[in-house]
Design a protein around this nucleic acid. Structure first.
Length: 118
DNA sequence: TGTTTGACCACGG
DNA sequence: GCCGTGGCCAAAC
């Protein structure tokens, strides 16, 4: 498992760049990274694990629903994490998702991976 | 080596 | 306004 120059690292970096108390969507990351495939974002997060320290719980689908809650080990863990950050989650959906939505474009188009230390 | 699926999104009917 | 289909790239079988 060496450093593979793949979009995976980009997805991880963007996920970490999500401010606390904010949430983003797979399509937003995919669009920012110009992947063209939001599915891969989910796959990237699927390969990621807590040991990567990637707040994947801040990433939800465009509906604002915690689609990946079932992949957190506990179906309620994702909601717990979001609520712990001040994000109100109801019925597995982010309340005021539109307002809580954060776009990676806020970082800037020239934004790149910060010093990634394995 | 080809097919299927996957934490999705956009568009069309 | 809701449901169905296509598309995207990559990994697993």
């Amino acid at each position: 498992m060496n450093n593979k120059p793949t979009y995976y690292d980009l997805v991880y970096a963007v996920a970490r760049a999500v401010p606390r108390g904010r949430v983003t969507s797979y399509g937003a990351i995919a669009d920012f990274l110009a992947l063209g495939a939001s599915r891969m974002v989910g796959w990237a997060l699927n390969n990621v694990q807590p040991e990567d320290r990637v707040p994947a719980h801040r990433v939800v689908n465009r509906k604002g629903e915690l689609s990946g809650r079932h992949h957190f080990g506990s179906p309620t863990l994702m909601q717990e994490l979001l609520e712990a950050e001040g994000v109100r989650v109801e019925n597995d959906c982010v309340v005021d998702f539109k307002e809580r939505f954060w776009s990676p474009q806020e970082l800037g188009e020239d934004w790149e991976l910060p010093e990634f230390k394995p």
